[in-house]
Every structure is written in structure tokens, then in C-alpha cells.
């Protein structure tokens, strides 16, 4: 049986120090081949965590998405800088999600 889109996942977990993290995954068919590269499927992968500055707020730690003109890319200087991007090795949503999943575990292991 094939996977039907959309896939909307929200998962909350602790790291090993008890800090709260939110994992948000949104994968949906948009039909806009120009806006979402390469196949019109909109992908957003986010990792947020409770801010050290304000424990009532979350800060964005990882953001991967695929809007034009970049294709699959990671905002690589979060949480401080929103506009810095670097391409990632992914040609579809599955590869992007695998990349995001590996990144999550690196972050969880380091924190």
C-alpha cells in the first residue's frame, strides 16, 4: 500500500537533560511544480526547543524545506539567523525526511 499525502506529524520529546523539543513534519501535495522543487510536494521539517532565555517560548533549531528557488535546503544558522541557507542532498521528501531524522539524533546525542 502506498503512502498517501498529506503527512502531518507533531512529536514532542525530551532530550537527555529534560529539555523539551518539538518535531514538526508537514508533507503535502501542492501541485505547484514551480514553487516546490522538484515535484510540487511541499515539505517542511522543523525542530523547535524551549528557549533558554524564555522558558515559555520555543526557538527554531532546525528548518528544512523545499521552496523555489532553492529546492531542498536547510536554514543552517538557526536560531539566530533565519535567512542563511545551505543545500542538502535530497531529491524527494523521503530523502529529506531521512536527512532530518539523522540530524535530530545528532542534536539529541550532543545536547
Amino acid at each position: 500500500m502506498g503512502i498517501k499525502l498529506p503527512i502531518i506529524h507533531s512529536y514532542k520529546r525530551f532530550d537527555k537533560f529534560g529539555r523539551v523539543y518539538l518535531v514538526n513534519v508537514e508533507i503535502e501535495q501542492s501541485g505547484d511544480l514551480k514553487k516546490f522543487i522538484p515535484d510540487g510536494i511541499k515539505c517542511v521539517f522543523r525542530l523547535m526547543r524551549v528557549s533558554e532565555v524564555n522558558s515559555h517560548c520555543y526557538e527554531l533549531v532546525v528548518l528544512i524545506d523545499n521552496h523555489a528557488p532553492y529546492g531542498f535546503h536547510q536554514h543552517d544558522k538557526l536560531p539566530g539567523v533565519q535567512d542563511s541557507r545551505t543545500s542538502i542532498q535530497a531529491t524527494n521528501w523521503k530523502e529529506a525526511w531521512l536527512y532530518f531524522d539523522r540530524l535530530l539524533e545528532e542534536i539529541m546525542d550532543e545536547t
Binding site: 498517501k4 498529506p6 503527512i7 502531518i8 506529524h9 507533531s10 512529536y11 514532542k12
Partner: peptide, 10 residues
């Protein structure tokens, strides 16, 4: 596919 839309906690 049980968890297409998922809101889950550890």
C-alpha cells in the same frame, strides 16, 4: 499506515 496524521508525545 496508522500514523498519517500524528500528534504525539514521548
Amino acid at each position: 499506515f496508522q500514523h498519517q496524521n500524528l500528534n504525539a508525545y514521548q
